[in-house]
Amino acid sequence: MLIECVKVNDEFQVVEGKVLYHNADKDKVYRKLLELRPKEYTIEYVGEVPEDLAVML
């Protein structure tokens, strides 16, 4: 979800905002971000995280 922030707390979590766009595909969210160019925003993933998610960088 691409969210335009109205209010964030001191840990930068959104307290109040407006959802500008949502899509399961993050690339599409990024594309919409560059199209809309909100002045203050965050992107939140609200789906389930796979239990077997593993990362190696």
């Binding site: 930068f12 203050e40 939140e44």
Partner: peptide, 21 residues
């Protein structure tokens, strides 16, 4: 997220402010 630790940040540029994870 899994065994990972995630925090929010504040990022300011000349055109906007983002709060990346």
């Amino acid at each position: 997220i899994g065994g990972l630790m995630i925090v929010k940040a504040y990022l300011k540029g000349p055109e906007a402010i983002a709060y990346p994870k």
